[in-house]
């Protein structure tokens, strides 16, 4: 196993534990905004689409990058906006 892989696995496992710890405290009232907010966070794949873009140099590569960018941007922008819209409604 290479060192970068070991480091990546370490990060994955620790992040999962942090996730379980932080999210198990969220009250049921907020479960929909939580899921939608988490949804927005996995929109980080937009950074993945950007990182992989320089590798494209043929039609197939461009098509893949285009759709990855469309999907990821839709995910991240829509996710944050709709979560904010929901949370705005939660009032005392």
């Amino acid at each position: 196993m290479s060192t970068p892989l070991v480091i990546d696995i370490t990060i994955l496992v620790l992040s999962l534990l942090v996730g379980f710890e932080v999210i198990s405290k969220v009250p049921a009232t907020l479960h929909t905004p939580l899921m939608s907010g988490a949804n927005a966070i996995h929109g980080i794949v937009v950074v993945g689409a950007m990182l992989v873009a320089p590798t494209a140099d043929g039609p197939l590569g461009y098509v893949l990058v285009f759709f990855a960018a469309v999907f990821a941007a839709m995910n991240v922008v829509g996710g944050y906006v709709v979560t904010d819209r929901m949370l705005e409604m939660f009032r005392r």
Partner: peptide, 30 residues
């Protein structure tokens, strides 16, 4: 979330791994 974490492994990008893992954990709990 898990798929995004795997994309993080593909690109060796820790921010994708962390974010993907957080969502994976959240989805699993729910």
């Amino acid at each position: 979330g898990t798929a995004v974490a795997m994309a993080g492994f593909v690109l060796d990008s820790s921010v994708l791994i962390i974010a993907g893992a957080l969502v994976g954990a959240s989805g699993a709990i729910l």
